[in-house]
Amino acid sequence: MSSLIDHLHLVAATFLLAGLVKGVTGLGLPTVAIGLLSLVMPPDQAAALVVVPSLLTNVWQMAAGPALGPLVRRLWPMLAGVCAGTWAGSGTLTGSGAGTASAGLGIALVVYAAFGLLAIRPRRVPAGAEWWLGPLAGAATGLVTAATGVFVIPAVPYLQALGLEKEDLVQALGLSFTVSTLALAGSLAGAGALDPRGAGYSLLALAPAVLGVFAGQWVRRAVSALVFRRCFFAGLLMLGAHLAVKGLA
């Protein structure tokens, strides 16, 4: 954790910004935090720092919605796929795969940013296809999570394609991210990248993250959500491109 100690101010600022993004958009905390922290430390160490803030803020988001029980019953095949995919890819972030993980993270961010900037709306998933498409989307998300620490692709487009009401979608995102965070934590712990000391550092990162979430909720009421999202995705695109080139160099 020497990189963390050397960059405490950057870590605090990163989680403040990541929390702000989540407060405005309902997602993006791990994406922003891991993307920025990977500029100064290995991706597995950045992912370990994200565990506690991501878990608690997403549990909060999941619990605040109106229909947790029905969503769990509907989405459990996808969630099981997330766990299976994450554990199947366990260890990708650590050791000799660090450079590949950095490139993978960059590519994942570029894809995610492109979806956001182009306002691509995925086609509606037919109800009869959820039983097989959900586990596939979950497993793919798990593999991306294991390789990059980021769990938005393809989980977010899949959930958006289910035709959920706004509040249900926000709660479904919180549910998906909670399960993904737990699966990632288990994967990191199994690979030795998340130990009690690292968990303690992650707990300290919770304070600026929560402060950022509250600030983001204020910004959401004061600033056009469309303008904010465009700026967010443009910044994410540049960050992802930089990480991809750095990882492949």
Rank of each mutant, 00 (worst) to 15 (best):
L68F: 08
A225I: 10
L143H: 07
G89E: 12
A146I: 12
A139N: 09
R73I: 13
D6F: 09
I107G: 02
A67P: 08
A33R: 02
G85M: 04
A12Y: 02
T57Q: 05
Q61A: 02
V110D: 06
V213R: 01
P135S: 07
P126T: 04
T86S: 01
F233E: 09
A225S: 13
A183M: 11
K166F: 04
G23K: 00
L188M: 07
A191V: 09
M78Y: 07
L226Q: 11
G95H: 10
L55E: 10
G81Y: 08
L136Y: 06
V227M: 10
V50L: 14
S102W: 02
A199W: 14
S187E: 11
S3L: 07
P53A: 04
A88I: 14
L20V: 06
A98T: 14
L29V: 07
V59S: 06
D195F: 03
G216W: 01
V52P: 08
A199H: 04
L16C: 07
A172I: 02
T181R: 01
P208Q: 03
S187K: 08
A225P: 07
V210M: 07
L10S: 12
G200K: 03
D195I: 03
A114V: 15
A113P: 04
M238E: 11
W132E: 08
L162E: 01
G174V: 11
P135M: 14
S187C: 12
V227F: 12
L37S: 00
V59M: 15
W87P: 07
V179E: 05
L68N: 07
A67C: 14
L204Y: 12
G198E: 06
L237W: 09
L17T: 05
K22Q: 14
A88S: 15
A98F: 05
L194H: 05
L109K: 07
V50K: 00
V52T: 04
R121A: 13
L194S: 05
T148D: 09
P135L: 06
G235D: 05
I120F: 11
G65A: 05
L162A: 03
D6R: 09
Q217V: 00
P66K: 09
